[in-house]
Amino acid sequence: MVEELDLEGLSEAALNERLQALAGRGGQVVLHNTRARHNLVVNVSGELDVAIQGSAGFYCCGFMNGPRVTVTGNVGWYAADNMLGGSLTVGNNAGSNLAPSMIGGLVLVHGSAGSRVGYGLKGGTVVVIGNVGMLTGQQMLGGRIVLLGAAGPGTGESMYGGAIFYRHGALAASGTNNRARGLEPDETGWLAALLAEHNLPLNPDEFECLAPTPGKQKYHLFKPRLDAREKAV
């Protein structure tokens, strides 16, 4: 049975409590009049399909564990923050800092995402079909990020764990403390299955991977450029 909820006059806290009550029983919920409100589907755990008709604001699906959420429009910054499980599928674009400190689950963005996708990511999978801004996967601890479009500078900056998959030539510049490598056999299989599951007509052969540099990280405070010359005005 599909339950239709109009958010007009309903607070975010009341909505999330309602969703949590429904999550115990499974089922489907369609949310209308979301008007990019913040904190939608926060701390909801259990089996539930949630369809957001429109856009969501900040922290959509934060601390969520279990529900499958689709958003027809955009999501704001920090979507899927600290998410533990379930999935968030975004029809359009996502703001910056998508899936910060996410622990598990799947985030799939059909459009583009801003900077710092997967900041401090711990686990789960983040897929962005469009382009992403700078510093994707900064200081991520684990999990996997799959980028189908172009990526801005600083990708994989100081990553401690996990992997970032990107298409050949799509990286503007990677950050420090990571290294590019080919895909391991298990990663190839996993990526092929992921692409097929989401009807993305690409071959894992088109991808390479950023992984952490083994050993201690290098930090940069001062790096003199001894070959620098004053630019003529």
Partner: peptide
């Protein structure tokens, strides 16, 4: 980590607090 990945300013913090209050 130098900054919160999910709080980049006072406006965000206000929304974050609402999230934590709900939790």
């Amino acid at each position: 980590h130098p900054r919160h990945g999910d709080i980049f300013g006072a406006d965000d913090l206000m929304v974050k607090l609402q999230e934590l209050r709900q939790i």
